[in-house]
Amino acid sequence: MITRIWHGRTRTSDAEKYLDFLLTAGTREYLDTSGNLSVRVWKKLDPDCCHFWTVTEWTDVAAIKAFAGEDYERAKYYPEDDGVLLEFEEKVEHYESFRVSQPS
């Protein structure tokens, strides 16, 4: 399993509007892509900005490429990000990840 993590920042005044976007249209394409296992949105409000992370789990790199394209390490942005995000980070992070279960 591969975990993909994207990070973005907004002004605090845009935080709730952007969270609404991420929880609906901003993550729809992830959910609609075959091989996506989960989508989580993390939010951290600081005094001068608000941080957001989308943390997604995928079956494999091929599934991520179906979502993000051949250059799958490049961040993917949407028109709604313009004027809201404080910067456009070029890359996302990918990690091999493992589920841990309770012993039987």
Score class of each variant (00 low, 15 high):
I64N: 11
A66V: 10
C49E: 12
I2G: 02
T56E: 03
G83N: 06
K17W: 00
V41Y: 02
A62S: 14
F52Q: 06
A25R: 15
S13A: 09
G69C: 12
D46S: 09
R40N: 12
Y72T: 06
W6N: 05
R40A: 11
H94I: 14
V92L: 08
T12N: 01
L86F: 10
S97K: 05
G26P: 05
F67Y: 15
R40L: 09
P103K: 11
T27P: 10
K43N: 00
I2H: 07
S101V: 11
D32Y: 01
D32M: 10
E16H: 06
V92Q: 03
D14M: 01
E80V: 07
D20E: 07
I64F: 10
G26R: 07
H94G: 10
W58Q: 02
T12M: 01
F52C: 08
T33M: 10
V61A: 11
F88T: 03
F88W: 12
K17Q: 06
A63N: 08
K44D: 07
D14E: 01
A68D: 10
D71T: 11
A15C: 05
L19G: 00
K76E: 09
K44H: 13
R9C: 06
T3G: 00
Y78W: 15
S38T: 01
Y77M: 02
V100A: 09
V61W: 12
A15Y: 04
H7P: 01
C49W: 08
R11A: 08
E29Q: 11
F52D: 08
G83H: 01
D82V: 14
H7M: 14
T3A: 14
M1T: 07
D46C: 11
V100H: 05
D81M: 12
T56R: 06
R99V: 02
G83W: 11
D71G: 04
A66G: 06
R11Q: 09
L19V: 03
E90K: 13
K44G: 04
V41P: 04
Y78H: 13
P79W: 13
A75Q: 13
E16V: 02
V92E: 01
E73R: 15
L86Q: 14
V61T: 14
K91T: 11
L31K: 10
S101M: 03
T33I: 05
R74L: 13
E87M: 13
T59W: 02
L31Y: 06
A62D: 15
C49I: 00
K43D: 01
R99Q: 09
D48T: 08
Y77H: 05
A15N: 03
F52S: 04
L45W: 00
Q102G: 01
A63K: 08
A66H: 09
C50V: 07
Y95E: 03
A68I: 11
I5S: 07
G26C: 03
D46E: 15
P47H: 03
H51C: 09
